[in-house]
Nucleic acid binder design. Structure first.
Lengths: 253, 253
DNA sequence: GCAAATGGTGCGATTATCGCACACAATGGG
DNA sequence: CCCATTGTGTGCGATAATCGCACCATTTGC
């Protein structure tokens, strides 16, 4: 049955790996079986294979991801020149704004941090780092990514949006969400506050696309950081100049 | 033939993915075929599968890793509480020492950066970030990892060591390398300079193991940073206190 | 002592995978 | 201009790998 050019076993194995996304520290065989919907025996054999290949390791009472997935991510980051060109620019912008600055892209229906920098003064961290996944609809990063993606992505995101709001300020109305994305496209930047995490606000600007998928540059801070008049303009200015710097040096595919 | 509990197709697919480790920005089908040693048609079908699953994407004239691998890495990092507890400790240590500080672990026969922080003063970066792979034998991180791993790992690393030195100072003699690892184990820290990159030196201390695999905390700087008398002791002190702080808070498996 | 959940595994039928083979385009050197 | 080389796409038959049911052991909780 089905496609001659599609290796089912591989797809199922990747499905098993994907069960560990979203901050699951460790999973047991039955849990993976439930999450993936695969047969129990199949899951077991796939997990054994993944362990032998070094992608999973057995802890007490469960399996967890092995450092090997980091090496894979390192391949992605290295190919993008993240270490050499992106990181310095982000650091500089973070210091200049005294705010957290991140480079993000899209994976399916989530925004993903590709790299991140925080100013030296920051004593608290929000806990998001490389590989962290954020919702597309309710964050500045996400909306800017949607604004630069095809319309079908927005449709999918709206269709898949969770019915439970993150905070009391989370916008749930489809039309208003469409408008927010449209606004981001027209203005050339996105702004969001309180919708994903109360007390947090973000700004995002586009950076061009390194393939099919767009990249954006974003900053996050507590809401009151944007109260001061003219602050938003300054943030946008720094972000846009940083975006240019990265666009010029990096992405030399 | 062969094992009933081993999914060959999955293993081959992962092999294809692994071809992209080591900073290959993009690979063509024939290149992957050569690197993996698999059949051409098989490689093609596996790649099509990987593209459809979102792990690879097609660029002009080649395939490259997709942001999806970052999400996977995010699962690993999130499970380790890297964002919340590790990052702040590294940042603090980096500022205190005014040196780059990194948390690393072992993937097969490489040391891998799990997280990293640089002081605000740093204007140049070595280009190593999360997921970067370093040799085990010729770096401080690597030797400390070897000192805390089983003896079979050291044997494998020695057997697999590349015959061509990284720099003119690279130690190639097996016995002296064994001694260096043994010394690291006895002293409780490892030191290396010039062997991997001329002009660079590193110090590493153990952090305990979060599973089978040990973790180490390390710092890197230019060689002259360690010339000042007493500097090494100060570095060790800060690293050890940071290691304790991470060991206390994190790794709550 | 029973019930439910987890872990391990054998085995036959199915079918997905393998890898050769053929076909075609683009490139470049002689 | 031709031929050798390299990359790409794909059909198909034989084989072997995968599937998933079934059975059994062990543990946990009531």
């Amino acid at each position: 049955m089905s496609d001659r050019d599609f290796a089912q076993t591989l797809a199922k194995g990747l499905e098993v790996l994907a069960c560990f996304e979203g901050g699951m520290p460790q999973l047991t065989l039955p849990e993976i079986t439930r999450r993936s919907g695969l047969d129990r025996a199949v899951v077991r054999r796939l997990c054994l294979t993944l362990v032998r290949c070094g992608y999973l390791e057995e802890g007490e009472g469960g399996l967890r991801l092995a450092p090997r997935v980091l090496t894979l991510a390192g391949g992605f980051l290295g190919g993008l020149q993240v270490g050499r060109v992106v990181q310095p620019v982000l650091r500089h912008a973070a210091e200049e704004l005294d705010m957290e600055v991140a480079l993000a892209t899209r994976d399916r229906l989530h925004a993903v941090y590709v790299d991140r920098a925080a100013p030296a003064s920051a004593r608290v961290t929000l806990g998001f780092g490389i590989g962290s996944a954020l919702p597309l609809l309710h964050t500045a990063v996400g909306r800017m990514l949607l604004a630069r993606s095809g319309p079908e992505v927005l449709d999918q995101a709206l269709a898949a949006r969770s019915p439970s709001p993150y905070t009391e300020a989370t916008e749930l109305d489809a039309d208003r969400l469409r408008t927010a994305v449209e606004t981001a496209r027209e203005q050339g930047y996105a702004f969001a506050r309180d919708e994903f995490e109360l007390g947090a606000a973000g700004v995002a600007v586009p950076l061009g696309a390194l393939g099919q998928v767009p990249f954006v540059l974003a900053t996050t801070a507590s809401v009151n950081a944007f109260d001061e008049p003219g602050r938003l303009e300054r943030v946008l200015d720094v972000l846009r100049r940083s975006a240019l710097a990265i666009g010029r040096l990096g992405a030399p595919r």
